[in-house]
C-alpha cells in the first residue's frame, strides 16, 4: 500500500506530476526527432511544430469544434451511464429478464457501429442526435457488463448478514449490493469514456457538420494533414481529461475500494 522508498509527501506529489509530463515530453520529442531526421513530408506526417502552427492559425475555431464534440460526448455518456445502470439493475433483479435480454444486448453490442452511421443519417438526419446516439451505442455496454459483475459479486458473508437481519430485497440491494458494486461500475465507466469519444467522432466523420470529427473529415478533403493532426491531438487531450475526471470521481466516491482490493 505505502511505498517504502517514497520520500516525503511533497516530493511524492512532485514525482506524481513530473513522471507523466516526462513521458509526454519524450513521446513528442521522439515524434519530432523522427520527422526531422527522415525529412518526412508534412502531408504524410506533420511534425509537432506543424501541428501547433496549424492550431495557432485558427485556435478559436478548433476550440469551438472541440466544445461541440465534448457536448455530444457528455450528453451521450450521461445517457449511456444512466441507461446502462438502469438496465444492469433490472437484469440483476430478475434472472428471467437477464436470460432473455443478455443475448440481445450482446448482439446489439457486436454490431459494427460504423455500419449504423448511414442508417442514423436516414433516421435522424443531420445535427446532434445521430452523433449522440452513436456515443450511447458505443459506450453503454461496458457499463452494463461491469455493473452486473459488481452486483453479482456481493461476498457470501455480507449476503448471510443481510439474511440474518431479515433485510428486505430492496434494503439488501441499496445498503449492500449497490455500494459493493461501485468499484466495478467505475471500471466500466473508465472503459466507456474513450468509447464515447470514439462514438462522437464516428458520427461526425460519417455525417459531418461540426465537431472535431467533421474537422478531420474536412481536412482530408483539403489535404491539410497538420489540421487533422491538430484535431487528433485535441481529441486525445479530451480523452485524457475525461478519463482522469472519472478516476477522480471514483476516488471521492469509493475511497474504501483502493484499500480493500490491494
Amino acid at each position: 500500500m505505502t511505498d517504502i522508498v517514497a520520500g516525503s509527501r511533497g516530493s511524492r506529489v512532485w514525482v506524481n506530476a513530473a513522471l507523466p509530463i516526462l513521458g509526454a515530453v519524450i513521446t513528442i520529442g521522439a515524434w519530432w526527432g523522427a520527422t526531422a531526421a527522415f525529412h518526412i513530408d508534412p502531408f504524410y506526417l506533420p511534425s509537432p511544430v506543424d501541428v501547433i502552427d496549424s492550431f495557432m492559425r485558427t485556435p478559436q475555431y478548433l476550440l469551438q469544434e472541440t466544445w461541440t464534440t465534448l457536448q455530444r460526448v457528455l450528453i451521450g455518456f450521461v445517457i449511456a451511464v444512466a441507461g446502462g445502470l438502469a438496465i444492469a439493475v433490472t437484469l440483476a433483479a430478475s434472472s428471467v429478464v437477464e436470460r432473455m435480454a443478455m443475448p440481445v444486448l450482446a448482439a446489439v453490442n457486436a454490431i459494427p457501429k460504423v455500419a449504423l452511421a448511414p442508417l442514423l443519417l436516414v433516421w435522424m438526419g443531420f445535427g446532434d442526435s445521430p452523433k449522440i446516439v452513436m456515443v450511447v451505442l458505443l459506450s453503454f455496454f461496458p457499463v452494463i457488463v461491469s455493473t452486473m459483475a459488481g452486483l453479482t459479486s456481493t461476498p457470501a458473508d455480507l449476503r448471510e448478514l443481510a439474511r440474518s437481519l431479515k433485510a428486505s430485497w430492496w434494503q439488501t440491494f441499496v445498503k449492500v449490493r449497490l455500494t459493493w458494486a461501485l468499484p466495478q461500475v467505475f471500471v466500466g465507466l473508465k472503459v466507456a469514456t474513450p468509447l464515447a469519444i470514439i462514438g462522437a467522432v464516428i458520427g461526425e466523420v460519417v455525417n459531418p457538420d461540426h465537431g472535431l470529427g467533421s474537422v478531420i473529415a474536412g481536412s482530408g478533403a483539403s489535404n491539410d494533414t497538420p489540421l487533422a493532426f491538430a484535431a487528433l491531438v485535441l481529441l486525445a487531450l479530451l480523452g485524457v481529461v475525461l478519463f482522469y475526471l472519472v478516476a477522480g470521481i471514483e476516488r471521492v466516491l469509493v475511497p474504501w475500494a483502493r484499500t480493500i482490493n490491494s
Partner: peptide, 19 residues
C-alpha cells in the same frame, strides 16, 4: 421459521460493510 430480531448472529468473518 426464519431469522428473528431477538436472535443475533456473529459470523466467523466480521462481515462489515467496508464503506
Amino acid at each position: 421459521r426464519g431469522p428473528r430480531r431477538d436472535v443475533a448472529m456473529v459470523f466467523q468473518k466480521p462481515a462489515l460493510l467496508p464503506w
